[in-house]
Simulated assay, not measured.
Amino acid sequence: MKPKHLKKIIYHLLVGGFAILLLYPVIWLIMSSFKLSENIFVTAQSLIPNPFVLENYAQGWEGFGDYGFATFIKNTAIFVAFVLVGHLISCSLIAFGFARLKFVGRSFWFAIMIKTLMLPYEVVMIPQYIIFAELGWLNSLKPLVVPAYFGHPFFIFLLVQFIRTIPRELDEAATIDGCNTFQIYYRIILPLIVPALATTAIFTFYWTWDNLLGPVLYLNSPAKYTVSMALNMFLSNETVSNWGAMFAMSTVSLIPVFVIFFIFQRYVVEGISTSGLKG
């Protein structure tokens, strides 16, 4: 066997081993969703369910009281859709301004925007809650959705780096053809930053879909609960926790995440790698 072939075999064995190691918790979650709740931790070392049951999915899908799990999925989908649209519009506009427009204090405001990445959410959590309470927005999606229409520093930085790779000659040519600033943004920049926008959309979907702290703070009506809050309701400090139903619905909630990743993974790699370059 040639040395280069041996290196490839060793490389793939190592990568495959690490992949199995990283995927094992997910595999354990899925297989445990087919076990009886009382047997999940008793037979935790065994992946094979014995007996193999589907009751957990039926119980979990029934939800709580008058609200089935489909209601929580619908609430989460609406939540994600509004936040997704907000991030795509606001972050692309702000990034275009930082990357292409000249205005007083541009470097200062860009630095301030970057510094906000260092602020933990816990620092602004209480002030935001007081503001939204004064506005009467509690128990609604407004505190969770409206901030998305004012940009997100991580995505703004990502898009700024991507826009800087686009030659300014395109802007000048568009100006000669009679385009104003907004038309340059809409007709020239947006079509060229699709990979970065796709990356923004995918990460927004991931972070919003499994967001628990925000909904817990602002939502108190079961009819408005999200998937993450519904999963938390399967656990109880007073009675027996329904681990089987929680694992079953956790598996169901992972399906959109996997689907989105496998469909758009090419855009994630392309958007992140290209955003690190500067033309």
Rank of each mutant, 00 (worst) to 15 (best):
M113K: 12
M125C: 04
P127M: 00
V83P: 00
I126Y: 06
K102D: 12
L54I: 13
Q128Y: 03
E62F: 01
I48F: 04
F103P: 06
F72H: 08
L117S: 11
S92E: 13
D66S: 09
I78L: 06
Y67M: 15
E55S: 15
A81E: 01
G68H: 13
S90V: 04
R106W: 01
A95G: 13
G63F: 11
V80G: 00
I48C: 03
F82C: 12
T71N: 03
W109S: 03
V104D: 06
A58N: 11
F82S: 07
N56G: 14
W109K: 02
G65D: 09
C91M: 06
L84G: 13
F79V: 05
F72C: 08
R100C: 03
T76H: 10
I73E: 09
F103S: 09
I78V: 10
G63P: 12
A81F: 04
I130D: 11
F103G: 08
T116A: 05
W61R: 07
N56W: 14
W109P: 00
D66P: 01
F132N: 15
A95Y: 12
W109M: 04
V85H: 08
F79D: 06
N75Y: 04
N50Q: 14
I73M: 12
G65F: 01
I89H: 02
F110D: 05
F69A: 06
V53L: 14
R100D: 05
V124D: 10
A81I: 12
T76C: 11
N75E: 06
I112N: 11
S92V: 05
F110G: 04
F64R: 12
G68R: 13
I131M: 02
G105P: 14
S107P: 00
A99R: 07
F132A: 10
G68D: 14
F82D: 06
L88P: 15
S92G: 12
I112L: 15
V83S: 01
Q59N: 15
L88H: 11
G68T: 14
N75P: 15
A77N: 13
L54F: 15
I131W: 00
Q59C: 05
F79I: 04
F132L: 08
L54M: 14
L88Y: 07
Y57C: 07
T116C: 01
I112Q: 08
T71F: 00
V83K: 05
P49L: 00
F82A: 07
W109G: 01
T71S: 02
C91V: 03
S46A: 10
F82K: 03
